[in-house]
Write a protein that binds this DNA or RNA. Sequence first.
DNA 1: CATAATTCCTACCTTTATAGTAGGTATTAT
DNA 2: ATAATACCTACTATAAAGGTAGGAATTATG
Lengths: 133, 133
Amino acid sequence: MKVTTKTKYALLSLSEFDSVDKVISIRQLSEKYSISRKYLERIFCDLESCGIVEGKRGPKGGYRLSKPPSDITLKEIIKSLEKEVKVIDCEEIRLQCPFNDKCKMIPFWKNLNKIIENYLGSITLEQILKEEV
Amino acid sequence: MKVTTKTKYALLSLSEFDSVDKVISIRQLSEKYSISRKYLERIFCDLESCGIVEGKRGPKGGYRLSKPPSDITLKEIIKSLEKEVKVIDCEEIRLQCPFNDKCKMIPFWKNLNKIIENYLGSITLEQILKEEV
DNA sequence: CATAATTCCTACCTTTATAGTAGGTATTAT
DNA sequence: ATAATACCTACTATAAAGGTAGGAATTATG
């Protein structure tokens, strides 16, 4: 029931990008937060492939947000790194339960997932930056 | 960010105890849900040590709830099996962040934890049984 | 153009936590 | 006495997380 360090590192790092123009290199981030450079590189590849940041190579290169912080939800970010923003997979539970639809736990798990998803979907990176959370 | 199978098994099992008087053996539960008997035994030891169920040995023995389902919250149950009902440990994040109190992620993580805790604390086993969730 | 700084790519290794097993002891209804 | 149950402790296997390693591609700059 814990978020992975990938997600923690990603969010710590992203909280540095306070505008769409800001370019920051992996080196800077890894030094500032004492996170392994190679590991951060991989994290940013995930973020890039999900359309959250875009990289530019070469000297003075680095990463920037690929859209304004107000358009990036925490759900989106977390989904880039964890496979799902779900605490449990209802289908999986359903398989284990011999009573299928009669299983009394399913509605609870679904609600829990939904509550988390809704919250994460409602918070944007901008709110984090402006400390409105 | 996933709940463990221990928790899943525990909740599936507990959803069978529809009154304080109902006594169910590990054998019955493990057969009904095809869960390893030994593993279930350990799960129920955890539940017992946290005051949720109590066991009685011998033939016709088994487990029963140690208080009415309306007094058992899901938070309590999950806490018996996962160490914490937190998605992240804020203190831990604080240590990694060189800026300590200035870290912009802390309020977000705290809120997320709180939302989950509040929800889990608000749901009782009775509600699950009565399908009010 | 050479260089150095960066992203980008792929494969591998290490550690940790989860999931599950094994074998047995204590208790108790019949 | 027996058999069914909870209870206890130690061990093993597996999967996932966390992290390394080495290098290729790209690009600003002197």
